[in-house]
Design a protein around this nucleic acid. Structure first.
Lengths: 262, 262
DNA sequence: CGTCTAGTTGATGGGAATCAACGTAAGTGG
DNA sequence: CCACTTACGTTGATTCCCATCAACTAGACG
């Protein structure tokens, strides 16, 4: 048994150390919270989110409805089957959406990121559970009030529909992953798709943040924690990625792409 | 000329023989085709479909846009990535939606049944391929024209959104199935969910129609054809189901329910 | 310092994939 | 009408990928 580790040591990734990462995230969340109630025009995710559909002069009405909220890592946001009292627009942090089988098996159906909307369906019961992966800042809207507003604002409804359609596409992608890909392909294509999402948020990604645990990854990819760990180790040994705290540095995108088999 | 089943929508007759089944389906499809262009008020799936949102006096506008079409078993309806020229409302028959990986692996992301709408997202490119499992009758709408109509009809948009949300829920169910269930659980819970869908169409189901091939089932459930065949044989041996041409008779719902593990 | 949790790594086993043979029904053409 | 073909499904033998079981390491924290 060697002291040697895979490619992970050499790199003090400039941007991410465990503590530094946490602090940065905390600052980001705090920043969101400090914003005065209902200052949509200054919102960090305005333009990325469904509210992009609203014109400047429509924002005040939305602001009236919105309520800034915070969740700490691990905190529950909503439970499958409960009456849906609220919907959320995510401003910072990451949220996992999941279902649980009677015997405890869990499937994470998606990770939500800044700009994503939780509760797109506007239905009266939650179709999934959700909790905060790391510290989260969000706009909370009373569901009834928000639904009413949407009913009076067709272009917002259109935007909600577009977002739901996009979610559906992502869900279909994920069905392909779960149903037809090997463990290595699952991990590789998950990394690529996370990278794409980050890029759409505006950042060019060399170091991919993975705030979720290995267990979360496993429950998202339909694998066990051990298999996820082994695959990532293998990718690191092959210098395709570099493991850093709370993330991976993507070293060989071409290789990763080909491993993803899509 | 042929024996015309009384115009009940419940296409799925209790006793199914191969030939009888095919004839019934053919008659049903023919019946849909015979309807004069744009007679929405007499449509077999009116009330089950998104057009249920429209009032009587709005139907004529929709009728103007609609075009009755037919696809024979196996025929391609649309291809992933192609420009989306049309959307479809399914009146009879079954359609498979799927994605294909570069090396040919296929994942069927859903089976569409009467009342289902293909192209909910209204996006300009097809997010999946689709083809007819058996003979199909549908309303075809030019996408641009339909999109424009939806834009002018908020309650139709609302209905489209609701349908998309429902699809999303089904997709999440299926992710749980693909990611966290055993082969036997997959088959059992697929049968239960198909039964539920049929029942929502109005028929009480003792014999479940399965017009799709074993290969289709396998590609939907993330299994191989051999495994699907073995599991069904085992269920038959245990008298949980009875295999009939193009379907199964459900003999022991309680057992099936418990095998489905949900 | 001990405890706890998250993650890694190794050994082993099992469930589903793969490989292969066979059965059956529906065409097809002589 | 029957040999031949083809597509689809079933069943058995074997393989292999990933789950399971287990041991261990590294941080985090009181």
């Amino acid at each position: 048994m060697h002291i040697q580790q895979p490619a992970s040591v050499s790199a003090f990734s400039p941007e991410i150390l465990s503590a530094a990462y946490r602090d940065a995230r905390a600052a980001e969340v705090a920043h969101c919270e400090d914003a005065p109630r209902g200052r949509c025009s200054a919102c960090p995710v305005r333009g990325l989110s469904v509210c992009a559909a609203l014109a400047q002069d429509e924002l005040p009405r939305l602001e009236q409805l919105s309520d800034p909220v915070r969740f700490r890592a691990g905190e529950t946001i909503l439970l499958e089957g409960d009456p849906a009292g609220a919907v959320y627009n995510l401003k910072a942090g990451m949220v996992r959406l999941y279902r649980i089988l009677p015997d405890g098996r869990r499937q994470i159906v998606g990770f939500m990121m800044p700009g994503d909307f939780i509760g797109l369906s506007l239905s009266d019961r939650n179709g999934f559970s959700a909790d905060a992966v790391d510290d989260v800042a969000a706009c909370r809207f009373d569901r009834a009030a928000y639904t009413k507003f949407v009913g009076q604002t067709p272009h917002l409804l259109r935007q909600m529909h577009e977002a739901a359609s996009h979610e559906l596409t992502i869900a279909q992608d994920h069905m392909v992953l779960l149903g037809r890909r090997s463990a290595e392909e699952k991990v590789a294509s998950f990394l690529m798709s996370q990278r794409d999402r980050m890029r759409r948020l505006g950042a060019s990604v060399v170091t991919l943040a993975l705030p979720m645990s290995r267990t979360d990854l496993a429950d998202h990819l339909g694998l066990t924690i051990e298999t996820v760990s082994r695959v990532i180790s293998r990718l690191a040994r092959a210098r395709v990625v570099l493991v850093v705290p709370n993330g991976v540095r993507l070293l060989d995108l071409a290789k990763l792409e080909s491993l993803a088999a899509s």
